[in-house]
Design a protein around this nucleic acid. Structure first.
Length: 592
RNA sequence: GGAGCUGUGGUGUAGUCGGUUAACAUACCGGCCUGUCAAGCCGGAGAUCGCGGGUUCAAGUCCCGUCAGCUCCGCCA
């Protein structure tokens, strides 16, 4: 093993081009591959910038050639040599540096390496177990490095944009108070305060509002947040938000500004121009047309309401659902009339796996509609339903009749399933949509009271204020979500800044003034000292980067993610700690 | 808390209706080779079939349990 004394890297491997021919260079990197021809050895040297071919020949240096014979994959080398145009016919068009190679005069083996458990290259098909356990090798793969570079550029673009618009980057505590509502907290025991715990922040929500009270006017942060809930492909226990808050603004100010920011990030990272303004849908319209508050609007297959047409029909499943206050809704699966019985059965079981009790269907043919249930409908009813769904010969109409929420859930899932199956979802492209006019409150069946849909500091729309006492469920919030390709990537609201409105809000969710003071005291107290109108938004940075990088999971844009059971397979966190540590924290375990 | 998928040399896979020597590719090791770039040719080594139990004359294969990873439901103001 040798050291790099006296050598200073002059170039990066992937940067060398024909124009460098004739230059003496010093390269540092890892061995991607060695091709030993006996009398001539080629080594592909890789660093962060890319790969270049290094040639070892006894004619150039006997010593370097001998060393090159001992080199293996992932050895770390320093190479001194001259860049040369490759001989005619030996250029490699698949390599950015393929016009040239480097003739090695000297090589130093800076470190040896064990044989890695998988190839260091793009598109590896390895168990994620293995990738996570050897994350440092996984991260050597160019596609992983590209993702992290893109993430870096997204963060840079965010900071640039927001700084330019007068936002201050201000840090907020990681050790904070546990507050009720929301996700489960991660707790940190306090050694100095026996029996007391900090909570890691689920978001800097209360602090950023207090920064508005403090008169900072425009705040942002790219900040880690923690939620102790179960994981998904797009959910990690710790994740990153672009968090911002502004004073003296209303909804449109935030939507306009953050739209511009998001478009800027897309341009700076993925080179995508996204058209503005982004489309806007009300929550109600999104639920009606797509069955979800995070619709993927890149394709059709929209949901149609046929409740009125099904109300009086002879098909009991439909009629009784309507009688019970439910909805009958359908999707026109364009051109799927040719589906076999088995394919339709598959759709039925997909629907029932997504809460529906069943899935009714009409096969539309030129002579009419065929279905096991046509006998329960009149010609006229069938015609009206087919018309509502704009049915043509060759279509397959699918219906769910159930409670409104179940209908929406099942058809939304079915719509996505069909969209994917029929290849209707474009590979490329970023389709944003704002979802507006969320209900302020939703009724919680188990707690038998209204709960805040966003959080209890979200402002109702001024014109809906009178409804807060008479019809709480009908009050619309000044809240907004940003959805990208069917993924919720941002959400926020204009906050309540008037004491009387805040008190009404607490009353509506059944919180007495005493309880409010106990749970949110410091924020309420701050609010008594001159609070400006303010509002903000937070973006899921990992999700945004995931979509910009074209990845299917945020784990692929996080350097050190956790598994679905929230463990780190590399560091083996979490783990037990020494009894002395627990004693110091006054903690006794109760573990079977 | 629940449902589903996956687990076989380092890695990715095959292994039929349970049948005795677990196959293939690649990586790895050795030899030959002066223009390859997924180099090539020859040879070699490498597996408690995730783990535990059961059924059987016989289990990678069937049954039960369990562990791990992934996807989803619940959960995520």
């Amino acid at each position: 093993m040798e050291d790099m004394r006296g050598l200073k890297r002059t170039h990066h491997c992937g940067a060398l081009r024909l124009e460098h021919a004739g230059q003496e260079v010093v390269l540092m990197g890892w061995v991607q591959r060695r091709r030993d021809h006996g009398g001539l050895i080629f080594i592909d040297l890789r660093d962060r910038s890319g790969i270049v071919q290094v040639v070892f020949s006894p004619d150039l240096s006997r010593e370097a050639f001998r060393k090159a014979e001992t080199v293996r994959g992932e050895y770390v080398l320093a190479v001194v040599g001259r860049v040369e145009k490759r001989p005619e016919g030996t250029e490699n068009p698949h390599l950015a540096t393929g016009q040239i190679d480097v003739r090695a005069r000297e090589v130093r083996i800076l470190n040896r390496a064990k044989t890695p458990p998988f190839y260091i290259e793009d598109g590896v098909d390895v168990d994620e177990n293995v990738r996570l356990r050897y994350r440092y090798l996984d991260l050597r793969r160019p596609e992983m490095q590209r993702a992290l570079i893109l993430r870096h550029r997204a963060a840079q673009a965010t900071r640039e944009f927001l700084s330019r618009h007068g936002f201050l980057e201000i840090e907020t505590p990681m050790l904070t108070r546990s507050t009720p509502e929301g996700a489960r907290d991660f707790l940190v025991p306090s050694r100095l305060n026996p029996g007391c715990f900090y909570a890691l922040p689920q978001s800097p929500q209360l602090f950023k509002q207090i920064l508005m009270v403090a008169g900072l006017e425009r705040y942002f942060q790219i900040v880690r947040c923690f939620r102790d809930e179960d994981l998904r492909a797009d959910r990690q226990p710790e994740f990153t938000q672009i968090d911002l808050e502004m004073s003296f603004i209303d909804i449109d100010d935030i939507l306009d500004l953050t739209e511009e920011m998001v478009a800027y990030i897309c341009r700076e990272t993925a080179g995508e121009e996204v058209p503005r303004p982004f489309p806007r849908l009300s929550y109600q319209e999104a639920m009606e047309r797509f069955g979800t508050d995070k619709p993927d609007i890149r394709f059709g297959l929209e949901i149609k309401d046929v409740t009125d047409l099904a109300a009086g029909c002879g098909f009991k499943v439909f009629a009784s659902a309507v009688a019970a206050g439910g909805k009958v809704k359908g999707i026109n699966a364009k051109g799927c009339g040719s589906f076999s019985r088995r394919e339709i059965d598959e759709l039925v079981s997909f629907a029932t796996a997504n809460k529906a009790k069943g899935l009714a269907y009409f096969v539309v043919e030129s002579e009419g509609v065929k279905s096991p249930i046509t006998k329960f409908f009149t010609e006229k009813e069938i015609g009206a339903i087919a018309g509502r769904l704009e049915a043509e010969a060759g279509d397959l109409l699918l219906f769910v009749a159930d409670r409104p929420d179940v209908t929406a859930f099942a058809l939304s899932a079915l719509r996505l399933h069909l969209g994917e199956r029929l290849g209707l979802i474009p590979e490329k492209g970023l389709q944003f949509v704002w979802i507006l006019d969320f209900p302020l409150l939703e009724y919680d069946e188990t707690e038998r009271r209204y709960v805040a849909m966003h959080h209890p500091f979200t402002s109702p729309r001024e014109e809906d204020l009178p409804l807060l006492e008479s019809d709480p469920g009908a009050v619309r919030a000044k809240a907004y979500d940003l959805v990208l390709n069917g993924v919720e990537v941002g959400g926020g609201s204009i906050r309540i800044h008037r004491r009387d409105v805040q008190e009404k809000m607490f009353a509506a969710i059944g919180l007495s003034p005493e309880e409010a003071r106990d749970k949110f005291g410091f924020l309420l107290e701050a609010f008594e000292y001159g609070t400006p109108p303010h509002g903000g938004i937070a973006f899921g940075f990992d999700r945004l980067v995931m979509l910009l990088a074209g990845k299917k999971t945020i784990r692929d844009v996080i350097a050190f993610p956790k598994t679905q059971s929230a463990t780190d397979l590399m560091s083996r966190a979490p783990d037990r700690v020494a009894p002395a540590q627990l004693r110091e924290l006054h903690i006794k375990l109760d573990v079977k």
